[in-house]
Structures are given as C-alpha cells and as structure tokens.
Design a protein around this nucleic acid. Sequence first.
DNA 1: CAACAGCGAAAAATCGATTTATCGATTACG
DNA 2: CGTAATCGATAAATCGATTTTTCGCTGTTG
Lengths: 353, 353
Amino acid sequence: MAQQEAQQRRPSIHDVAGHAGVSAATVSKVLAGVTTVKPENAQRVLDAVELLGYRVDPLASDMRRAKRRIIGAIMPEFESEFFGQMVTELEGLAEQRGYTLVAASSRESETREKEILARMHDWRVAGVVLAPVRNEHGPAADFMKANGMTGVLIDRVLSDDAFDTVSADSAAASAEVANMLVGKGHKHILIIGLAEQAATVRARLDGFRVQAVALDPSIRIDVITSEVSVEPLRSSLRDYFASGERPTAVYSLLLKGTLVALSEFRRRGWHCPNDISLVGFDDAEWMQVTWPAIAAVVQPVRQIASEAMNLLFRRVEGGEGPPTARLEPCQVLMRESVGSPGGGPHSGGGDRQ
Amino acid sequence: MAQQEAQQRRPSIHDVAGHAGVSAATVSKVLAGVTTVKPENAQRVLDAVELLGYRVDPLASDMRRAKRRIIGAIMPEFESEFFGQMVTELEGLAEQRGYTLVAASSRESETREKEILARMHDWRVAGVVLAPVRNEHGPAADFMKANGMTGVLIDRVLSDDAFDTVSADSAAASAEVANMLVGKGHKHILIIGLAEQAATVRARLDGFRVQAVALDPSIRIDVITSEVSVEPLRSSLRDYFASGERPTAVYSLLLKGTLVALSEFRRRGWHCPNDISLVGFDDAEWMQVTWPAIAAVVQPVRQIASEAMNLLFRRVEGGEGPPTARLEPCQVLMRESVGSPGGGPHSGGGDRQ
DNA sequence: CAACAGCGAAAAATCGATTTATCGATTACG
DNA sequence: CGTAATCGATAAATCGATTTTTCGCTGTTG
C-alpha cells in the first residue's frame, strides 16, 4: 500500500532519496524530468515516491524562485454571479498552468484593495489579476507599478499605460441597447448608475448616448448616478419619480441598479413592460424566470478570464511590449421587460401628492 | 522615504540586520516581540525595517512550522450568493487571526474535491473549512481523516464522528415553513430537491413532513428529487404537472430548485400566489424585488462562518474533545409568493391535453 | 580569585526543496 | 600510457525566515 495512515510527518525529498539509495538532488532531477539520470536510478526514485506517497511541498519548492507559482486575484466582491464565475474561471486557468490561485475580496474598498495587494506582494506572487474597485488609476495600480509587480486589470477598466487590461465592451453593448430601445420607439429614457466606477460608467453612458442621439436627435436622456453606494441612488430615483418624471424606459448600468429600479417600480405599482421598460447591464440567472423576464447585457466572463490569464502569463514569462487594452463583446438579451412605450394600460399613477 | 522604486530584489531579514548592525536572529526576535533585546538595538532594527520597507516573507516564515498560517476553504461553487458570502466571511475571519485564506471550488464534483484537498495537504494548511458536495461521508472527509488533517465541515452536513460540523438548522426551518403553509390551509404540497445532498435534503424533508403531518394528518405531500443535476428535476417537474397533479404549494429545498419551479410556473402561465404558492430554501437579493416577492428561508451565513472558524482554530491550537455538531437557526421570510389555496382566480389550466 | 549565574547577541541548525559546483569513474584520444 | 572529455551523481550553497546552541562579557558569590 502506498500510504501511511495518519502519519505525523510527511516524507521529504530526503526520505525518498534514502529509500531509493540516491541523493536528494537526484530525486529532484527525476521529478523535474531531467534526462541525465540513469534509468535504473530513475525507476528506483519513482518506486520510492510511490511507496512513500511522496508529494512535493510547493512552499519549499517555491522558496528559491523569485516568482512563486501563485496567482493573486482581487475582486471587489464575491457575492455576485459575475465575480463568482470570474473566480471559478480564473482558478481553473491558473490550475491548468500548475499555479495556485489565491483570491481575495476588496469589499469595494480601495484601502483594503491596496492592503491585499501588499500582502500578495509579500507572498511574491508571480502575477495579479486585479478587478479594481474604481478604475485603472487607483492606489492599487500605483502600488503595483511602484513595486514592479506584473498584473492584468479587468472589468472596471478601459486602458492603462502600464498594465494590460481586459473588460467587456460596455460601449458597444450600450449602443446595442440604445438600438433596441430607440427602435421600440422610446423617446424618454432614464439611465442609472454608480459614478464611482468611472471607467465603465462613462463608457456605457457615452456608448448609449451617442448611438441614441444618432438614431433620434430629439431623444431625452436623463441620468441619475450616486457616488459610492446604492442607497443614495435609490432615494434619488424615488425623488425623480415622485417629481412626476415619467420616462418610458430605464437602462441600469449595473446589476444592483437593476434591483433598485425593480423595487422602485414595485413601490409605485408599475409593471414591465406595460408601464415602463427595463434593461440592465449584467445578467443573472433569475432574470429569465421572473415575470416578466428582465432584458440584460450578458458579459463574456469566460472570454475575459481566459484573455486576462493569457496576457498575464505572457508577462510572467517575460513577454515585453506595450500594454494592450482588450474589449470583449457582450451579448444583449432581449426579454419581456422591454416593450414599446404605451404598449399597454398603465396600472399605477406617476405620483402620489 | 521608506521606499525603493521598483526595486528588483526585496530586502531580506539579513539586509535589515546589516543596516541595524545586528544579526538576523536579533531582527527576528524584535519583530516577534521578544523582550530580551536591548532597547537601543530594538530601535535600530525598527528604524532599519522602516528605512528599507521590510516585510516578512510569509512563505519563508512558515517553512519551519508543521502547520502553516494558511486556512483552506473548499466550496461546491462560487456563483451563488450563499457561498460567495461564506467565502467573504471566512476570509475576514482568517485574516483577523493572521492567516491567509485559500479558497477553491470543487465545482460540485467529489473527485475534484479530493484533488483540491490533496493539494491543500501539500500546502500543509493549518486547517480546512470544507463544504462537501454531498455530505460528511464523502471521499474528501475520508482523506482528511486518513491524513490527520484538522478541519470543519459546513453546510451540507449533519454530524460526524471525526470533525466538527456547522450547518443551518434545516429541519427547524422546514418545520416553520410547514407551519406557515399548513396554517394557510394548504393540503397538497409538493417538495422538490436534489437527493445528492443527502444530509440536508433528508433533514429538510423530514423536518417539514413531521411538522406538517402533526398539524394536519390528512395532508398530502409529494416529493420530487433528482440525483445529480437540476435538469432531470426540471423534466420530472414538468411531467408531474403535465400529468394533472395540482398541488397548491411548492417548497423547494434549494435555490436552483426555486428557479426551476418559477420557470415551470411561467411555462404554464401560473402566477404566485393565486395559482400556486412557493417557498424556497435559501434567500437571494432578487427575491424581494420581483413581483411577487418570493418567500424564502434565510440561512445564517455569518453565524455559520463565525462558528466554523471558532471551532477550527480551537482544533488548530490543539483543542481536544469529541467533535461537536452545531445547527444555526434560520429565519423564514414570509413574502407574497405564499397565499391561501384558492385565494385568487386560476389564470391557467393544470393540463394541456 | 576562581567559579558561576545571567544577560544579550551572534553563530549555526533547521525547514524542504532547487541549483550549482564538485568529484569519481569511465571512455576517448593524442 | 597519460591526459582530457564525458557522464552520472553527490555535496554544498541557496532561498528567507525561525529556533536552538554557543559564546563573550559582566557581575556576583563562596
């Protein structure tokens, strides 16, 4: 049997060497696939490895290299489908290359983001996949530059002069949403978002506006954003509706905004799409089972993860050249929450005074 | 300035020792807070640390200990709110104690679960928080036992003879759901779930059934489960409804089941709660903004995480004694998806032939 | 005054691997 | 036949810390 039940100390490379009657260096070479080892000795090493159930200690193995076989991933949160899927994908891709992924959540805090990065630097990670809280110009990216770390920035970024970036093509997707809504005849559209995420919010906003105005110069586009959290956004939206504003469609630039919009519709007794249309950036599993199903922009998580890892490992392996800025195409899922303005009877009043 | 721009090699403890004019051992002692160091030398060490921006290499620091300051967390998936929150909580708790959390996803595969565990053993993690794919009797738990690893099992477990377990009190919560549904007058209830997760499914099933029958001995409880994935569950449910079965309420034992139920209701044009009532185990943010809002059992994520970490560190620090099995109380959120049977006009027929 | 205790710090061993330098034996060649 | 080249493997250095052992010095005591 190739196992020692509940053994106290795991066998080290020296134990293997002892059993095989060779030196530790030879064991190391056999396991590394070096060919200058006599076949007979190689076999004895492999037998000893099998017998003892020996496995390399990755920590000790990494000690001598400047870059350890660890990839750090920093996400703003783990609670959403998007970042959950992202971590799953990144983990698989890192594993494929024999690296361990260490994921951490910055919890939407730039201070924490930098602390985590410092800790990853302590770990001498080979590279970092950073999804910044705000954008590519935060303190975390500065820290990475100042310390010569290699990394890739994803999601809430557009482009950077030091790091490769990968994100969803928000602008193109938003233009497509504009096509959809203007095509349906909407002439007064409300956009909601969080300004904190400057990079992507501006791209999504501009992408939508440019296309919408091109299609219909007389269109009215209102914008409501809040700086940090969603609660101010909720009250702004409430005030906006209470003041009698009555757009025929709402485009939310982020998932939490979609939830806020839905709950405000509820408060006022408005139904989609008869009373108002709704499109959200970022898809979620539940959006297709509710009534109505919610139209959404689907972000290409797998492509972003895959491209980010490709770029990262290119740099880890010493790849030179100017940083690239990739934009991965999104898919816009038309669903029942979008209709034509006035497509059905309004079931609730616009204001309550 | 306490920084060297983009330096190639980070300062080691010997660099600090050199600058302070002492030995590496002394530096280590100062940083560890040993008091047998002359205050003057201690100050010089601290100055050198500040000057060079020195930080301990956690990898090297851990080399000599049998248990490294790493906690492994293995979750079945990262995509759901529940496990996302769980990882966030666990990460914070591990950090507080100066440990690094390395999270991995078993992707609902027991094979992968064991592979990950083996890798964590290679890392000599101090402890593991394992949320098993199936239950406490899987190959992963066996591996942990055979290799003398310390760990805590959470979520899909009831109790174990080797490890502490922490999970939501599914049985009590399900009894409460039974109270709610039977109290509303439901006499024909369908329960759906995945049998794979034997431990929790049985607890939830029994907890519900016992209480429901106690309240109303004539109640009819149908159960539909599928073994591995949700797709068979979906078709079973479809067949069940197509055969003319018409329960007045559905209790889903897991989140994905709630989504399946909702989508099948959609297919048939049934609305909650007029046509059928729905309660799901596991809450999600969207459930309160949809129309109707979906009643759900809220799992005490923070308590589970906190209790798991407490138990784990007790063992890591050498705590003895028989394993404990904790059950944390859930909260049942009554929402609009639950009504009385026949509480409104049926908008769709039960069958289509 | 020799022996000893106590203090603070340096030297050395250790953790478990990798990598470089070295070494002995065999073979090739002038 | 002596020296050089080659092959395979070992010894030793290294990574960056921690921990144990040793050491030098001061001060106390019999």
